[in-house]
Simulated assay, not measured.
Amino acid sequence: MTKAAWTEHVLVRKSGGEPEGVRLSLRDWGGDGRPFLLLHGLAGHVGEWDGLARRLRADGHRVLALDQRGHGASERHPVDVSRAAYVADALAVLDHFGLDGAVLLGQSYGAHAALLAAGGPEAGRRAARLAAVVLVEAGPGAAEPSVLDEVGGWLRAWPVPFPDRAAAVAHLGGGPVGEGWADGLEVREDGLWPRFDPEVMVAALAENTRTDRPDGPGWWREWAAIRVPVLAVLGEKGIIAAEEYAEMARLQPGRLHGVGLPGAGHDLHLERPELLHALVRAFLAETGLA
């Protein structure tokens, strides 16, 4: 997809935790229909959504995709990497463009931000501006503390700089997943480099492993508070266990629409973007949001 298909916007969002402001870069695909804001996962990048964004725009939707703080063309070393900061960034984008009735669609860490944006103590007020949430490979359960070492170790072990794209694609899984990850690399004179700092990624993930939250591990209270329809798309080889999904369904029996994809992994949005698009279209039709 060429850059001509979208326009880059840069917002500088100031907050108590970021008095100098945080640079937020996003791709605006245009459109006049129902707004979509697409949020990538941890260590990901905005370009992961190009395939889906193109399809949603062809359907007539207003499509925006955000490079979340700490990633891509956005602020590389933000001071605040709390879950609240990521949620506030997403809502600030909607505010900036004056978008109501939006669908927040995210994968993994980005989907978790979408979940929290729709839930929690302000769920009722936000339901007036959010139409629905689409969660790709994410849920409200807590991550195990060991995940920090696993994710951090994997990111730190990337043999950077990669000498060329082929080497990067091969190391990052090959196929459409490797291609998708490689698309987010920065080209420098000495090779290809990630556009994130592994230590920032680990710091951002740490809150999801906490066991001392007032309501216990995980974000179940926020999940139960959601007042808009939710589509959960999960890969058979993904990270959401059957027990977690069963509890999700129990707490949101009238709003949760779940789809499991046989053979798909955590990066199913890269593996099967055309199927994800079809599922989103069916979900919008079923909930009267098309």
Score class of each variant (00 low, 15 high):
E75Q: 09
L116A: 02
R272T: 10
E189T: 15
Y86K: 06
A241C: 12
D190G: 11
A127I: 05
G265R: 08
S82Y: 01
V233F: 06
L99H: 03
G235P: 02
P176G: 07
I226Q: 08
V103M: 01
E286G: 10
V10G: 09
V12P: 11
V63S: 04
P214C: 02
L205W: 08
G17F: 12
K14L: 15
V133N: 01
G180S: 12
A132G: 06
V177L: 00
E137M: 05
V81R: 01
G235D: 01
V79D: 13
D183R: 13
R125Q: 14
A170P: 09
G21S: 11
G265E: 09
V93S: 00
L270E: 03
H269R: 10
G47M: 15
E189N: 13
G110L: 05
S146P: 12
H9M: 11
A278R: 15
D59N: 09
E137H: 07
A285F: 08
R195D: 01
D164I: 01
E271L: 10
G173Y: 11
R62P: 07
R165E: 13
V259L: 12
D215T: 12
R126A: 01
W158D: 02
H45G: 00
P229K: 01
E75D: 11
D267M: 14
A114L: 09
M1D: 14
E271P: 02
A92I: 07
L275K: 12
A206C: 11
E8P: 09
G191S: 02
D197T: 04
G152K: 03
V200H: 07
P145M: 13
M1I: 13
G33E: 14
L284F: 10
A167F: 03
R62F: 05
L256T: 02
A142K: 00
G106N: 07
R129G: 04
D215F: 13
V12E: 11
G120F: 03
A203H: 04
V12M: 11
R281Q: 15
V169A: 01
S25E: 14
D190C: 14
A182N: 03
A58H: 13
E247N: 06
A241R: 13
A88F: 05
L270P: 00
A58R: 07
G124M: 12
L251I: 07
P163Y: 01
I239G: 08
E122Q: 15
A128F: 12
A225Y: 06
G33H: 01
S82P: 02
A123G: 11
H9A: 00
R255E: 13
H257T: 15
F196D: 01
L39P: 02
L42Y: 08
L234N: 02
V87N: 03
W220I: 09
R62W: 15
T211F: 10
H96K: 06
L39S: 04
